[in-house]
Design a protein around this nucleic acid. Sequence first.
DNA 1: TCTACACATATAGATTATCTATGCAACTTT
DNA 2: AAAGTTGCATAGATAATCTATATGTGTAGA
Lengths: 116, 116
Amino acid sequence: MSTKSLTGASIAAVILSILSNGDSYGYDIINQVRERSGDEIEWKAGSLYPVMHRMQTNGWIEDYWHEPKGERRRRYYRITPKGVKALEKERKQWMTTHRLLLSLWTEAGFSPEVAQ
Amino acid sequence: MSTKSLTGASIAAVILSILSNGDSYGYDIINQVRERSGDEIEWKAGSLYPVMHRMQTNGWIEDYWHEPKGERRRRYYRITPKGVKALEKERKQWMTTHRLLLSLWTEAGFSPEVAQ
DNA sequence: TCTACACATATAGATTATCTATGCAACTTT
DNA sequence: AAAGTTGCATAGATAATCTATATGTGTAGA
């Protein structure tokens, strides 16, 4: 089983959500995830980039180069209308599973402050 | 990308959570998931059983046959102490990702009644 | 100026996870 | 007796993911 770091259900949702808050690039996305999760989620570049490329061929995101003089160039991504729809779908699925888990945890008597 | 029905992050958590509420068997787990999710999550037997077997080799669950006379036999599963620990870990990871998504969705201005 | 480190992107190859399709068999309902 | 539901299972194909590795630029400090 071995828990994966970039877990299927959430990768797309997280990336699309980040891009909904503004264009970004690979390295920055990794940092945002680490910072926003309080250092609990650490994505590897070697795992993220292939995912980004796949999302691009799906038409969910688009890229453009940003290369100001004297600065390192960065490949920025923006979310497309198709990506917005995909995110909406992912969001619904996530919440469906979340509600399922919450109901199971409540029944099992797990503490609400964690399951909140 | 194509969203998977038995998605990595949640399969183990859902199964272990169900077994925390009492022993169960494959077919019943599928039904519980369908009913509890309001028909939104439909797991296939062909996908579930291999997962159950894998969880068993991980030592997270144990099986035993239940075959009363005149009834179909069922392979029941119970969660092990190792499984309880695994669930606790999965639960934390799920909530970490959930909080991350909620924070991103709040920032993006998605309606709270969905993101709740 | 040399070195080390953070920044930034990328791919190949191996491994693992998952889906689809199919098979079997017993019980139950019509 | 036929059809449907219950119940478990695996093979083969496909897809997703990880590990390791590669490349190059800019910056800070010795």
